[in-house]
Design a protein around this nucleic acid. Structure first.
Length: 271
DNA sequence: ATGGGCACCTGGCTGC
DNA sequence: TGCAGCCAGGTGCCCA
């Protein structure tokens, strides 16, 4: 998916177009996403004003008067702001039509994305309530990572990608953060030393914020709200660079499969 | 409690 | 050219 930087880029992209706007209609063309889009949603949303565009982990939170839309982009989803006259394409599943004449259009070839709506506190929604602290919050700190990694036999990369423990980091940024922290992806979490947990917290924050700065990483499907790709791919140190020279020491980058996901690392820089 | 494996779905690429 | 097989940015759920 879109990982945190891509979701944040999307949030920033739609924000100026949606704040203060009223929803003219929600038009659902394909209800079958990861969970079926609720049939009653269009009737619930019509006429509501949008007051905020937020994010929690990889979820976009579109705040309305009296409720919140919870949007997930899955692996291949994107949200774009378009003129309502732009013809729909394959895999466009819904349009949030605004009173400005524009639409926020959701497209997701794999349909792993989702759309939920709640009138309660979104933080208490079942998809959000057990999420770990945001990476840029003070609560995500070396002490926190130290504490949650104690006694854990799973690989540190798996820990980074478990949203109950760390949020926002997916397969690309897990490999990239571990490279920057000089830790091999397969190391057991409980084997990390204090200094390493500190380096890793800082590496997660750095890599996410650098990626946000250039609009995220586009491998295939991802585009921002204006349709443009993210440029962080050019800054990747290890992801999808198997056999290419490490940008730090020149050693060929290695690839291994962990829990059916590709991991990339430098065998010299990372220990 | 923890951790691993599967499922959901489509498309693009590789190799026979 | 056709097609089988594999891989892809996520994550909830089930099982041991």
């Amino acid at each position: 998916m879109p990982e945190l930087p891509e979701v944040e880029t999307t949030r920033r992209g739609i924000e100026p177009h949606v704040i203060g706007r009223t929803i003219a209609a929600l038009e659902v063309y394909e209800r079958r996403l990861r969970w079926p889009v609720a049939r009653e949603l269009p009737a619930l949303l019509a006429g509501r004003r949008i007051i905020s565009a937020g994010r929690r982990a990889k979820y976009l939170l579109i705040g309305l008067e009296g409720g919140t839309l919870i949007v997930h982009l899955g692996m291949s989803g994107s949200l774009r702001v378009l003129d309502a006259s732009v013809p729909r394409l394959r895999h466009d599943q819904y349009d949030l039509r605004l009173d400005s004449g524009r639409v926020v259009r959701f497209n997701d070839p794999r349909r792993f994305g989702s759309l939920h709506y709640t009138e309660a506190d979104p933080a208490q929604h079942r998809l959000l309530r057990d999420l770990a602290p945001e990476p840029f919050d003070a609560a995500f700190n070396p002490e926190y990572l130290w504490r949650i990694s104690r006694g854990r036999r799973l690989a540190i990369k798996q820990l980074l990608m478990n949203s109950r423990l760390v949020v926002g980091v997916g397969n690309i940024y897990a490999s990239e953060a571990l490279f920057r922290a000089r830790i091999r992806p397969g190391r057991q979490a409980r084997r990390l030393r204090r200094a390493e947990t500190a380096r890793l917290v800082s590496a997660v924050r750095t890599v996410l914020s650098q990626a946000i700065r250039v609009g995220g990483t586009t491998l295939r499907d991802y585009v921002g709200a204006d349709g443009s790709p993210g440029y962080f791919r050019q800054k990747l140190y290890v992801y999808e660079r198997v056999d290419q020279p490490c940008r730090v020491c020149g050693t060929p980058i290695r690839h291994r499969v962990q829990q059916a996901r590709s991991s990339y690392y430098c065998p010299v820089c990372q220990r």
